[in-house]
Design a protein around this nucleic acid. Structure first.
Lengths: 137, 137
DNA sequence: TTCTTAAATTATAATCATTACATTATTGGA
DNA sequence: TCCAATAATGTAATGATTATAATTTAAGAA
């Protein structure tokens, strides 16, 4: 049922293929809403009622470490958010409705860092304000 | 002793002038190290041994709300970091030494958001990797 | 200067995300 | 199938933050 893609990704990274990992990957791939760990846990509990929250923490941790998924935090909460998309790093957080939007940008990171001598591995651009929808209300 | 600047800022924002607020503002102004609330608290405790940690939370909260200071979170910890500088929004976090560097950039936010219809109030660009110093070791 | 009140500070308890740790179960190669 | 490494589990502990209520203080008015 289309899990081959995820199995492939795990094997490439040298990670063991487990039901929990596959299900979380599928969920994140199909729900690009930057969910928190708790949201992932709630979803997983529906499918695997006996799953431990620690398993979600562990799965997310291994997926982040192997760079299969992205993670980010926003100023308005302490929770870690995750996203299957590891290309889009620009996020707009609406202070009114809380929705998190992905944004496209052609920011040239390497250019920015070269002169400082830093080596970038990852980055997040978090923008806060009022989204288009809420601005109209 | 040079506190006029901070008194002026507080009055402009309609905030009451208190010793704690002035001291925290002065500390943040002179220490552009993006400290956590706990670090601010530890400093304040030296000067005001009986100060409550809640006071630090409250002061920081009022300074952020009135846009006198900036705040940011990074993926590697849940703690809120603050900075007196409300112009520099680009930060480089070294995964080796943990140091947080400010970066200059001419990213045109408004341009980026215009086409989406969002209204930006603030933003943080957090870049993760290995800093120049650590890369040399 | 004193009075007044809204705002700031304090202290304590509660909550919520995350980490630590020890045990059991499972994956995937030999 | 067996074994070793890795993953999942459960519980307890930690650490940041929030909630709440009582006390104190700043700053404008009398």
């Amino acid at each position: 049922m289309g899990l081959d893609k995820y199995i492939e990704m795990l094997k490439t990274k040298g990670l063991k293929v487990t039901q929990h990992r596959l299900e979380i990957m599928k969920y994140l791939d199909n729900n690009r809403t930057h969910p928190t760990l708790d949201q992932v846990y709630l979803y997983m509990k529906e499918k695997f009622p006996s799953i431990s929250k620690m398993t979600v923490y562990n799965v997310i941790d291994s997926l982040i470490s192997s760079r299969i998924i992205n993670s980010m935090r926003f100023v308005n909460s302490t929770e870690l958010h995750v996203d299957f998309d590891n290309k889009t790093h620009f996020h707009f957080v609406c202070g009114k409705c809380g929705e998190i939007y992905d944004l496209d940008s052609d920011l040239d990171l390497q250019e920015l860092l070269k002169k400082e001598g830093h080596e970038a591995e990852d980055y997040n651009v978090n923008i806060y304000g009022t989204c288009g929808k809420c601005a109209k209300k």
